[in-house]
Structure formats: structure tokens, C-alpha cells
């Protein structure tokens, strides 16, 4: 269902399903972007960021970007743009309370890393409820804003666990160095999120993130508790799960689509991680 909703307080919600689309845009407000089925590719300067149903992207106010959907199957995209006053009220009501300042040192931050974040947990529950309710005809703006407020709470928590806590794990005493290394590690992560289905070489990954291979391996492990290779394998398995659950592609097709080289190693890794075989998982999910 396609709709574009602008609330009285100027928060905007957009949902559309397309197979082909190319846009050049500039964000008016802080925006969350989701691809609820299929994928959409964003280009921010030289960076290419591809989002899938297990990830989302944030764009700060005033970011120029292009977005592209080019798919044989319909891609459903959903986005929320927050009015600046709503964000200020959120910061005053939620982030500036003493307890949340103690719990949440990123509370006062207003400019966030424009990168790909995992779409799961409370954020996923709340966005799904919001979307379902709008599609059932919800008009009550107070309730819609309640969902939007909670999505911001969820985003703050994701930011804290994905960026802040991980950068704190880096073994550099200088904060500026930690922030810069984290930015580069995020671009390595983005590269894997976007190119997970291709043959990702460590040298390319290091070059993309402006780190030497050794430096990348060491700092990536410090921040994410796994090597880039382990991270990529987990991502491929996760995307394979999405395909097993949401499509009818054969296991062999899925193996190729998520970038594994042979079905036997895919099945072994899948079994190790999820304690079940891909076929059994598909049957259970049906």
C-alpha cells in the first residue's frame, strides 16, 4: 500500500512499493530509511549503501543522496522524517533527564553516523506496529507520534550499542582517534552489508575503509568481537534466512545469491549457527 503522510507537526511517513526508481534528493530532516522487502541502494558521495529488510539507514538533515531500486520483484520502502522541533522536544523530554543521561551518554547527540544499522528488536516491533496500524486506517496523530517517539528511543539505544559502546572497546586512549577508527570500521561494515553477495577480498575491504589489512583485522575484532570474515559469514547466513523464509528460491540458488561458494559449506555453517538445516528451517517458517 502506497501512502505519504505529513502530520500536523510536520513529521512525515512515506511507504511505497516500486520495482524501478531512481531519485536524487536532499533530506529536509533527520530520516530513517527502511527496505521492508527487497533492497534499495543509496549513494552518499562515493559511498554506496544497500539496505535490506534486516537493516536500516539514517540520514541527517541536509544530506544529498541518490537512491535506486532496480528489481524484478516489488521492493517495499518505508521512511520516517522527523521535524526538527519534534527532535528538540524529544531531546528535552527524554534525553535530558538525569537518569537517561547516566544510562545513555549519547543522549544529547544530534548528528548521528549516517550508516547502516541492524533492523531488529524493539525498533522492528514498533515500526511494524506503526505500519500495520496506518494500513488499518489509523488517523490518531497522538498515537502515531507516540510510535515515532519510541522509534527515536529505539534508535538511540541502537546507536549506543552499535557505535558508542563499540568505539569504547577500541584500544586507543585518544577519543578522536577512537571516533575516526570507528568511522572507518563502519565503512568496512557498510561495504560488507552492500557487497555481501560478491567475493569480498580483505584487501578491497581494507582499501575501502582506509586502513591497512593488519590494522583493519585488529581493530575490527576489538570493536565487533569477530573478524571481518566471521561478520560476513553471519550476515550471509542471516540474509539466507530471509530468503528461505520469504521466497521460494531453491537452496542452491540461495547459496549463490548470498555469496557462498558451495551448498555443503553453507548447510554446515547454517546448522552450526541455527541448530537446524536450511530445509527444516524453511518448513518450520512456512
Amino acid at each position: 500500500m502506497d501512502y505519504s503522510k505529513t502530520l500536523t507537526n510536520n513529521n512525515k511517513i512515506l511507504c511505497e512499493t516500486r520495482e524501478h526508481r531512481y531519485q536524487i534528493q536532499c533530506t529536509d530532516d533527520f530520516t530513517l530509511k527502511f527496505a521492508l522487502s527487497g533492497n534499495e541502494v543509496y549513494r552518499l558521495g562515493r559511498r554506496e549503501l544497500s539496505i535490506y529488510p534486516d537493516s536500516f539507514l539514517i540520514l541527517n538533515k541536509g544530506t544529498q543522496y541518490t537512491s535506486k531500486i532496480d528489481s524484478q520483484t516489488p521492493v517495499e520502502v518505508f521512511s520516517i522524517a522527523y521535524d526538527q522541533n519534534f527532535l528538540n522536544d524529544f531531546n528535552n523530554a527524554y534525553a535530558n533527564t538525569d537518569s537517561s543521561l547516566l544510562d545513555n551518554p549519547v543522549a544529547l547527540q544530534t548528528d548521528f553516523n549516517e550508516t547502516i544499522y541492524p533492523f531488529k528488536g524493539d525498533m522492528k516491533f514498533n515500526i511494524t506496529h506503526l505500519k500495520n496500524n496506518i494500513e488499518r486506517g489509523l488517523q490518531d496523530e497522538l498515537l502515531i507520534n507516540e510510535y515515532l517517539h519510541h522509534s527515536l528511543i529505539n534508535y538511540h539505544r541502537i546507536y549506543q550499542s552499535e557505535i558508542f559502546n563499540k568505539s569504547e572497546k577500541l584500544a586507543f586512549t585518544n577519543k578522536k582517534t577512537r571516533v575516526e577508527i570507528m568511522r572507518r570500521l563502519n565503512s568496512a561494515k557498510e561495504y560488507m552489508y552492500t557487497n555481501y553477495n560478491k567475493n569480498v577480498l580483505l584487501e578491497d575491504l581494507a582499501q575501502h575503509s582506509c586502513l591497512s589489512v593488519n590494522h583493519l583485522l585488529r581493530t575490527f575484532k576489538q570493536a565487533f568481537n569477530s573478524s571481518p570474515h566471521q561478520f560476513l559469514t553471519q550476515l550471509r547466513l542471516q540474509r539466507a534466512q530471509l530468503l528461505l523464509r520469504g521466497t521460494e528460491y531453491s537452496i542452491n540458488d540461495i547459496v549463490c545469491m548470498v555469496g557462498f561458494e558451495c551448498p555443503s559449506s553453507f548447510i554446515r555453517l547454517f546448522k552450526n549457527k541455527y541448530k537446524t538445516t536450511p530445509m527444516k528451517f524453511r518448513k518450520l517458517a512456512a
Binding site: N126, H129, N133, D140, L142, L143, E146, Y147, H150
Partner: peptide, 8 residues
């Protein structure tokens, strides 16, 4: 099923 909605 939806705490935010029921809360509201």
C-alpha cells in the same frame, strides 16, 4: 499485542 496502542 501492541503495548503502545493499548497504553494510548
Amino acid at each position: 499485542d501492541d503495548c503502545l496502542k493499548d497504553y494510548h
